[in-house]
């Protein structure tokens, strides 16, 4: 346990040192700028716009961090050979994998919390009262980032940093797309709004293999929609507690499985 904590803390400080602070400043700048301009544009929806944008930017900055640092957790250490001094010590290999992940998770939690604080500060003078839903939505962003980080961890275990970044991005995008596709094609979206080409695609989907593929993908991909509470915040609606609990459980289980697979892969690996 001590070793696990030491590695997690090491990874945590390691990532913190890589100028993550700048991204918080950049975030604050974006949010403040929009907050100043928003009134002009939105006819009374500036609180909503700043909230949506704030959450979107939170996700973006988190993703940037995960894609740049998370997707190279393992491969970078192996390539730079820094991992040798760790693994030569009396720790298990899974300590290293899980510790790296926990370090990343701690950074993400800190980042999301910090950005949420900035967002609340930006919203206050606009008359936006900080609501629980905003905190819940930020928690959702954190959970999403957690899942992406788990995917990135596995990817970084399988390939080089650049490839791992691409792979992670692809998987995350597919995860987003899967929800939209399914809703769209299962008729969740208004058919009247589909273009002819899209209607054809929907028909093809309902006919066969795409359908099966998507359903399969639903179990493999991170279905981040389960932890997406942004619509609720935007429209000042409450998030059902059950949805929150189930979403959280889903994200944790998914991430857990990914980390587990990453551990199994890393256990068999030659690092020299």
């Amino acid at each position: 346990m001590n070793a696990l904590r030491a590695i997690a803390v090491h990874c945590f400080t390691d990532i913190l040192r890589s100028r993550i602070l700048y991204s918080i400043v950049a975030y604050a700048a974006v949010v403040m700028l929009v907050a100043v301009l928003a009134g002009e544009w939105t006819l009374g929806e500036e609180v909503r716009l700043v909230t949506d944008l704030g959450l979107g930017a939170m996700l973006l900055f988190g993703l940037l961090l995960v894609l740049t640092r998370g997707a190279e957790t393992i491969s970078r250490e192996v390539e730079r050979k820094t991992v040798r001094v760790m693994l030569a010590r009396p720790i298990e290999r899974w300590h290293f994998v899980v510790g790296s992940y926990l370090g990343m998770a701690m950074v993400l939690l800190l980042l999301v919390a910090a950005l949420l604080a900035v967002l609340v500060v930006a919203l206050l003078p606009m008359g936006g009262s900080p609501s629980w839903t905003l905190a819940v939505a930020s928690w959702g962003v954190f959970l999403e980032l957690l899942m992406v980080a788990a995917v990135a961890l596995l990817a970084s275990n399988l390939s080089s940093p650049v490839l791992a970044t691409l792979l992670t991005l692809l998987v995350v995008f597919a995860g987003h797309l899967a929800t939209g596709l399914r809703a769209w094609m299962d008729g969740g979206a208004d058919i009247e709004h589909l273009s002819p080409a899209e209607r054809e695609l929907a028909a093809a989907y309902q006919a066969g293999p795409l359908n099966v593929g998507l359903r399969l993908g639903y179990y493999v991909l991170p279905i981040v929609a389960h932890v997406n509470f942004k619509t609720e915040v935007a429209n000042a609606l409450p998030v059902p507690v059950m949805r929150l609990i189930l979403g959280t459980a889903y994200a944790l289980v998914y991430s857990g499985i990914m980390v587990l697979v990453a551990t199994a892969v890393f256990r068999r690996r030659d690092v020299s």
Binding site: R84, L87, A88, R268, D270, V271, S272
Partner: peptide, 11 residues
Amino acid sequence: TSINILLGLLR
């Protein structure tokens, strides 16, 4: 190589 095997870094 042999030293790395001795450390369990390589199998």
